[in-house]
Design a protein around this nucleic acid. Structure first.
Lengths: 242, 242
DNA sequence: CGGTCGATTGACACCTTTCAATACGGGTGG
DNA sequence: CCACCCGTATTGAAAGGTGTCAATCGACCG
């Protein structure tokens, strides 16, 4: 049932660096199974010390933190190819929670093998560090958006970024891709209220810049959307896949 | 002139995990020199492909990104023990800039040895990944502050965090520590305007919660400040030192 | 002594939040 | 099959936190 790493569908995407045959064989050993969950399922909890790590194969999810007062900060949105659970593996426990927002399939890795990983395959250890650096980079971008951009710009930026990522993954059909999140998720990601997020989305839709409704994200002109967001429309950097 | 790793002053702080003798010897080889700079000196530039990496020994600095419109987002504040330049080492180029805000002394490492590092010392490679995960964790915390907290809470949180870090590093004398930043730096870190930051700082000072003036940060009661910030007053996690 | 930089203060505009109510679709139990 | 409930999306109005503009002040420096 489980996909063999040699047939990994993600490897066919240009977004990811290709594995050597040797790496593929090693990943195959490292992979202990697959996890299939429904929308809404929690994958990792803040403070937990999970014995497992994952790579998203299909579907989407999100990482978030909860504050004492009940507020939620969404750290980022999880797309296929994202590696989940690194924090617990190196720091001992997760600093944030992870949950699926659509049905998901994930490769499961055994954390007890993690150290072995570092010792036996320095190239792969390097790649894991690379991934950590990429996450840091994206968090920095998000922080910049939340801190310095207006609501309209921030939302335009966020939707454009997800669209670009979706495009690189081949999720875009025509000019649309599935985007299985609630408006509340986006609001919590950008530090905006749900009401204002809704009104801003409506405005962007009316201006024909971007249309996100019924779980479908459509962008007619990425250049124009990028101008609105105050950024360039750049494809996401190629990255390693674990 | 340069400090030998065996006598590294940071190793005496409880904040950092201790090196084994073997690790110390390896670090000594990895370290190619020391860099001394004045306040205001740029250390790394966004987009640059620096051949060097650093560990801050003395002094402080900050990481930041510039937007097209000239706005600046400060990503975090650099304290002694922080590792600088990982992004360029793994991703090819820096995604943010780094500059000193006080006189600084830094250990200099040669990037061409970086790969060697991963291959020869998996434990140290693991530590570098650990550091990357910690940065991600702190960025997540900052994002949560900027996104979900009021100006007063955010500033209280930021000052408390720096005070705790300073305390762990032994920088606190009595109830004060040096904090060589401008109000503009804090404003840019939290996505607030300079004016509002100033007024909020005054309010916190009047309420005797925290006093930051003349480059000196004083906190009488960390518990009370933590309550204001809406968090716990926790010491920073112990971390590896590169 | 003029010039620059950072800190400070006051007034005012406005973007965003909060409160409240309605609409719409899907699921469930009677 | 329909009434009811719940989660999500949508809309209007009002309050308020934060940004912008502008001016002053003190410290430092050539």
């Amino acid at each position: 049932m489980a996909v063999h790493c040699a047939n990994c569908p993600l490897q066919r995407s240009d977004l990811f660096l290709n594995h050597t045959d040797d790496e593929t064989r090693f990943m195959e050993r490292f992979k202990v199974g697959e996890l299939v969950v429904n929308a809404g399922a929690p994958l990792l909890m803040e403070g937990s010390n999970s014995p497992q790590m994952f790579t998203a194969l299909h579907g989407m999810g999100l990482r978030y933190k909860l504050l004492k007062n009940g507020e939620r900060q969404v750290l980022n949105f999880i797309f296929p190819g994202d590696f989940i659970g690194l924090q617990a593996a190196v720091m001992g426990e997760m600093q944030h929670s992870v949950e699926a927002t659509s049905a998901m399939t994930l490769c499961v890795f055994d954390r007890s093998e993690f150290w072995n990983f570092f010792r036996a395959h320095p190239e792969r250890a390097f790649d894991i560090t690379w991934l950590a650096a990429i996450e840091e980079h994206f968090l920095g971008e998000t922080l910049t958006s939340v801190g310095q951009r207006s609501a309209t710009q921030a939302i335009a930026w966020a939707l454009l970024r997800m669209f670009s990522r979706g495009d690189a993954l081949g999720l875009v059909r025509g000019r649309s891709m599935p985007l299985p999140y609630r408006q509340q998720d986006l609001a919590d990601a950008l530090g905006l209220s749900l009401v204002h997020t809704n009104k801003t989305l409506t405005k962007l839709r009316d201006r024909q810049l971007v249309n996100w409704s019924d779980g479908l994200l459509s962008v007619a002109d990425t250049e124009k959307l990028a101008r609105e967001a105050g950024t360039e429309d750049e494809p996401p950097p190629r990255r390693p896949l674990i």
